[in-house]
């Protein structure tokens, strides 16, 4: 995957998140397009590309939406990408349920890792309730899996990555 295409994906996620925060500000936190593209790259290209994408996307997210500490989200995403890429390398995650499960668990892991690092560095962070976390996981899983299917459908017509 070229840097240009990675940049395009990050830009798309940025625009989507911006639009979402404008259109549905109350529900914008439930969907994380940066997380979705990180998981996608991990599953398609492996953990190395996923970690790089995760780090770059997280930095873009922090810079654009004002993360409390630059790099905190990136650290969580790097570890998340490694884990997802590692799992995706050993298991065939191409079916819809598998992708749903992966995205759901990734969203939970993402919040958990971020919370842990915030605690370690004593960075005040908005906490999510378990219900909200589950809700966030479900939203990301559904949207992400849909996007994956869309991309794959698109790729069958013209390879994207």
């Amino acid at each position: 995957m070229s840097v240009l295409r990675a940049g395009a994906l990050i830009l798309a996620a940025l625009l989507f998140q911006s639009a979402l925060s404008l259109l549905l500000p109350a529900h914008a936190a439930l969907l994380d397009p940066f997380l979705i593209i990180t998981v996608y790259v991990c599953l398609m290209r492996g953990e190395t590309a996923g970690m790089l994408m995760g780090a770059a996307a997280a930095w873009a997210q922090d810079l654009a939406f004002g993360g409390p500490v630059l790099g905190l989200l990136g650290l969580a995403r790097v570890l998340l990408a490694y884990a997802v890429g590692h799992v995706g390398h050993r298991f065939l995650i191409s079916s819809l349920p598998a992708r749903l499960a992966t995205l759901f668990l990734a969203a939970l892991l993402d919040v958990w890792l971020l919370g842990r690092f915030a605690a370690v560095f004593e960075v005040p962070l908005r906490s999510f309730s378990v219900l909200t976390q589950l809700e966030r996981g479900a939203v990301n899983a559904i949207v992400g899996a849909g996007v994956f299917q869309l991309i794959e459908w698109r790729l069958r017509r013209e390879p994207l990555l």
């Binding site: 953990e47 190395t48 970690m51 790089l52 780090a55 500490v69 630059l70 790099g71 905190l72 990136g74 650290l75 790097v78 570890l79 490694y82 690092f117 560095f121 004593e122 960075v123």
Partner: peptide
């Protein structure tokens, strides 16, 4: 890559916190 990214992020975070 993981180690490099983790270290880089830790440094970046430590610089701010």
């Amino acid at each position: 890559v993981l180690a490099a990214l983790v270290v880089a992020h830790l440094l970046a975070i430590s610089w701010q916190v």
